[in-house]
Computed example of a mutant assay.
Amino acid sequence: MWSILAALVGLGAVGVALWQVPWWLDARYLPTITQPQATAVTGVRTALLAMGAGGLATVGIIYTHRTLHQNREGQVTDRYTKAIGQIASDKPVEQLGGIYALERIMRDSVKDHATIVEVLAAFVREHAPAPEISMQKPLQRWRDAGAQYAVLLRRNAEHNADPRPAEPVQAALTVLGRRPQDRDEPFLLNLGYTNLRRANLNGAHLEGANLNGAHLEGANLYGAHLEGAVLSSARLKEADLREVNLERAMLWGAHLEKANLYRADLEMADLFAADLEGANLWGAHLEMADLSKVVGQLTVEQLVSARPRRSTFLPERLAADPRVMARIDAVEKEGL
């Protein structure tokens, strides 16, 4: 504000100087000045005055723009604060309102994009954590805490009653999956160890996301973008992975039993210790994919239905199979 006032005062002083100083310096010549000369001097003064007025107008425009920008920033801050309050509510309707309000802010404000993505990811992790109870744990651990163990078992049973994510969690996933892709994100989207069973992630953009240990059994990931994603120990049993892009994805120890990988892109994917038993690999692209250490019963039929290449790393028993070798030759000849 002080700098703007100083600029206005300075422009005013310049205007006065332009208007009066020439006459002060040449006052002795005024009685003899001719009419054409006076007209020329007046024209110059008028032009200089117009230039000064233009400068003042420019300063006013700059000030107005700055004020509008500050007001807009204040409005964004107010909207963000209100949205955070909504998603912190215990009422699903208010949570939904807060989630979609954050999406609107994310699209309007580039600088708030990263923060909102992290907030929504944290919301999913908090409201849909992966189940921690396993019947494989020794009961000795609970010998002195029988009541607590019973409570945990009951909660686990209630949790399994409806495996779909709660509506606000699904909304947060939807917003994350369709977030703008033309912006830099200085972090990896963290959805690790979450319970996303039967979630709808159709076409979601989850490139490079951390999905370590995530429960995605029966999830809809049709056409999803998971390039470079980390899915170590992820549970993808019976998941819909048709035409999903898993290029360079890390699938160490992933559970892919009976998953539908129809025409999926597994180029350079690392499937060390992954379980592909019963998985549909029809048309799946396996260029440079590492299937050499998969567990479960990977069959010749699965590979023959897929698109293995000479660069595909296969178990020895399958790499030497005549049908698999013939399929590789056919795919290489197609060159697609």
Score class of each variant (00 low, 15 high):
Tyr149Leu: 15
Val119Asn: 05
Thr77Cys: 03
Leu196Met: 05
Ala150Cys: 04
Met106Arg: 11
Ala279Asp: 00
Ala224Glu: 09
Ala130Ile: 12
Gly177Asp: 08
Asn245Val: 04
Arg179Thr: 09
Leu102Met: 11
Thr299Met: 03
Leu68Asn: 13
Tyr262Cys: 01
Gly218Asn: 05
Asp26Phe: 10
Ala128Pro: 03
His225Val: 08
Gly203Leu: 08
Tyr29Met: 13
Arg104Trp: 09
Gln86Ala: 09
Ala214Leu: 06
Tyr100Lys: 10
Ala320Ile: 12
Ala326Tyr: 06
Ile84Cys: 08
Lys237Ser: 09
Arg66His: 14
Ala320Cys: 02
Trp142Ala: 15
Glu158Tyr: 05
Ala239Val: 04
Ile328Asp: 11
Arg248Phe: 13
Pro308Ala: 05
Arg317Ser: 12
Gly223Cys: 06
Arg154Pro: 01
Glu167Ile: 11
Leu102Asn: 02
Ala289Trp: 05
Asp90Leu: 07
Val124Tyr: 12
Phe187Leu: 11
Asn160Glu: 11
Leu314Met: 06
Ser292Phe: 06
Val41His: 11
Pro180Gln: 03
Phe187Thr: 05
Asp265His: 10
Ala279Trp: 00
His255Cys: 04
Glu73Asn: 11
Gln136Ala: 10
Leu266Val: 03
Trp23Ser: 12
Leu281Thr: 02
Lys237Thr: 09
Arg242Val: 00
Glu316Val: 07
Arg198Cys: 07
Pro138Val: 06
Val331Pro: 01
Ala269Arg: 06
Ala284Gly: 05
Glu332Leu: 07
Val21Ser: 00
Ser305Gln: 11
Leu102Val: 03
Leu261Lys: 03
Pro138Ser: 14
Asp90Thr: 15
Lys111Ser: 12
Leu251Ser: 02
Gly60Val: 13
Ala121Val: 09
Tyr29Ser: 15
Gln20Phe: 15
Gly208Thr: 04
Asn156Pro: 03
Ile4Gly: 07
Gly12Ile: 13
Leu211Trp: 00
His215Asn: 10
Phe313Pro: 00
Leu49Trp: 14
Asp321Val: 08
Glu217Pro: 00
Pro322Ser: 06
Asn71Ile: 15
Asn195Phe: 07
Ala229Asp: 08
Val117Asp: 05
